[in-house]
């Protein structure tokens, strides 16, 4: 059995979609291939991989309540390709969005279902994940913490001779547990999706989210964007101002 995972985020690195694709693939058996869909030049390579694939998993961000624009020409090309090759490939989708409600991914899910219907391929359902940005931030935080923990273990080891300081290790395990707690529902739904891929079964449509109450999530998100905007300087360049077009026309 061969499963192709397509990371449809336009980001070159550190996309939430890529991360979820990798996480899902950990629970999928058989041969696996992870592809990136950013530009038209990626189409050919992906279609080549689909030739002998049993299932394809689209992992994509929600853009303006739907599918990112650069994915649409690929769907059209793949649709034609599927009809020409009489393909019966099974299609799954994992959508992640910035807002906390995973259910906001519903229109995207329907677009992919419509695509399958028109292309004569098997729609097997998908998972909509709310709070994708936070999940992405959390996994980066964990990696940074892991590095910091290792550094402090080494330094304490050099000064005290004990390279496995319990206190430091415990601190790391605690933050790891926190991340696993916030992500527990996503991981569960993800394993369930992988089980369906393995069993060649339909998954249906399911929605989940980061396990944070939404009012807290909104505060986190606002703090996150404030910090980024201070670092990038946008906050000092008319952050909220009703900017008028300079190079277009007079309004």
């Amino acid at each position: 059995m061969k499963t192709v995972f397509i990371d449809c985020s336009p980001k070159r690195k550190f996309s939430a979609s890529g991360f979820i694709a990798v996480m899902t693939s950990l629970f999928v058996f058989g041969s696996k291939k992870k592809m990136k869909l950013r530009t038209k030049s990626d189409h050919e390579g992906i279609l080549k991989e689909l030739e002998d694939a049993d299932a394809v998993v689209f992992s994509m961000p929600l853009y303006v309540d739907g599918v990112p624009s650069h994915v649409l020409p690929f769907l059209k090309e793949m649709g034609g390709w599927c009809r020409n090759n009489n393909s019966h490939i099974r299609v799954y989708v994992i959508a992640n969005n910035g807002f906390i409600e995973g259910r906001q991914n519903e229109p995207l899910m329907q677009v992919i279902e419509n695509f399958c219907l028109r292309s004569g391929i098997e729609w097997c359902g998908g998972l909509g994940i709310g709070g994708g940005v936070m999940m992405n931030v959390m996994r980066i935080v964990i990696v940074v913490q892991l590095i910091l923990t290792l550094i402090s273990l080494i330094f304490t080891g050099i000064s005290t001779g004990n390279f496995f300081d319990g206190q430091i290790l415990l601190g790391f395990l605690k933050s790891l547990a926190e991340v696993l707690f916030f992500g527990c529902s996503i991981i569960m739904f993800d394993i369930w999706l992988a089980t369906c891929i393995n069993g060649k079964k339909e998954y249906g449509k399911h929605y989940t989210r980061i396990m944070v109450p939404s009012f807290l999530f909104i505060i986190f998100a606002d703090i996150f964007f404030t910090i980024i905007s201070i670092v990038k300087g946008g906050i000092f360049r008319g952050w909220f101002s009703k900017k008028r077009p300079a190079s277009y026309k007079d309004f």
Binding site: K11, S69, F225, I228, G238
Partner: peptide, 16 residues
């Protein structure tokens, strides 16, 4: 070109 997902239109040069 399609959006690159950088959010600079919010965080770097607002509305640009």
């Amino acid at each position: 070109a399609p959006c690159q997902g950088c959010f600079n239109c919010w965080t770097k040069n607002p509305a640009t």
